[in-house]
Design a protein around this nucleic acid. Sequence first.
DNA 1: AGAAACAGCGTATGGGTTGAACAGTTTCAT
DNA 2: ATGAAACTGTTCAACCCATACGCTGTTTCT
Lengths: 240, 240
Amino acid sequence: MSDEPAQLPPGLALSWGVLPVQRRGPKPALSVDQIVATGIEFGDSQGFEAISLQKIAAHLGVSTNAMYRYVRSKDELIVLVAEKAWGRAPDHIAASPGWRAGGRAWVKAQVDRYAERPWLLDVPILGAPVTPNLLHWVETLLVVMDDSGLNQHDALGCAVLFDGYARSYANLARQLAASDSMPVESAAVGEFLVPRLKSAGYDRLFAMYTNHEYEDTLDDDFDFGLDRILDGIQVLIDRR
Amino acid sequence: MSDEPAQLPPGLALSWGVLPVQRRGPKPALSVDQIVATGIEFGDSQGFEAISLQKIAAHLGVSTNAMYRYVRSKDELIVLVAEKAWGRAPDHIAASPGWRAGGRAWVKAQVDRYAERPWLLDVPILGAPVTPNLLHWVETLLVVMDDSGLNQHDALGCAVLFDGYARSYANLARQLAASDSMPVESAAVGEFLVPRLKSAGYDRLFAMYTNHEYEDTLDDDFDFGLDRILDGIQVLIDRR
DNA sequence: AGAAACAGCGTATGGGTTGAACAGTTTCAT
DNA sequence: ATGAAACTGTTCAACCCATACGCTGTTTCT
């Protein structure tokens, strides 16, 4: 009966558009949306660590602490920034023909988002998604899995699977892209590492490094893991 | 010809035991190993953010800046701490009967490590593993996959798959454990969320929340996703 | 014995999050 | 209309953190 949105996790209320009603006092010079948009701008242009209350405040021509009139903490800011940066899942995913195409489209869409905004990989995961857009991604995948005939529990298990794969693949892709852009360091690492791999008895890794088989196109790898997951789910469906 | 271990990524040289030779001057009061061990201690007792150069220095009775005689940067410290905290992969994994049991044991071992040291989930992943213990985990999985008859490339793809799954599952487990321990907040979140899920049209999520089907035992979920991956790999093996 | 190399410390800087007290502005209730 | 209440942004101030520089004293090689 009293203050409802009191001790909810950071960003929950604001992400759902529940902002404290204002009755008296000066009009706010800023808006939460404006602050969050600036945060995304900084993330896009300078990476995750550039998203700070100070920088945003300076950019908006306001003192640092004025931020705390809009946002409870930095954590809250990050939650809101991530939520907005992800956006809603594209509609074409749910319209895919069958769960297999749908699952593939979902993972691909996530990987694409990570490619557009690599700093989303740096956002710490505080808990299960509770914000509208992030939940929309989950809901979209559940819609896709309707077609498979699996129950809710299994479908959620698939979601964890897809999500984990998208994230780890995107992470791998980012780091490979980074090491490609500086072949000097990459070569130095190989020079340092290869003899030690041998003497440590890591035969398979040694073979990989010397065969340069790790330089395959990354797109193949993407399909590889995804196909394994899809096949595995298919086996389950057939068994039921 | 000159300084070999010059601009290698942070932690690479030190993790392989290559430390700058010392010929003159006072004996170091500390050792890298001691510093890293303290870092792990702090992580275990107070979480990832407690691992700071200041805190470690204070605990060892030394000024903060003395740390930089042993470690180039905080990033380097973190790399070393993670490397040592992971340790080598248990030997029983490689001794598993068949790739399927081996893969399962590998993922289970990783999940167990994450359960023992949840803060490992917070360690930012800067790049591909290059330190001895982390590479030992990879090598162990590759040894396991020898049995499957897959080539190196496919085996590495499986590694990404397993690793991603272990990580995302461990992350889920941690957050569920945390919300279990504070049912108050959990209930408040549900109260806030459920009506909004409905009006947002997230029918499947709404059903899940209201059916309380998400409260299933987590161990089942673990096997679920893992079985999908294993089945999917099996399909590939059969096809070749 | 002397010189070189190196350890740890003090001091300092810059960046970041957060809190408390304060002055100005708007609006509601009277 | 007027005063009180509420809310704004600001300044001041802690506090934590990672680094950089230069000093002093110690150790060891020559």
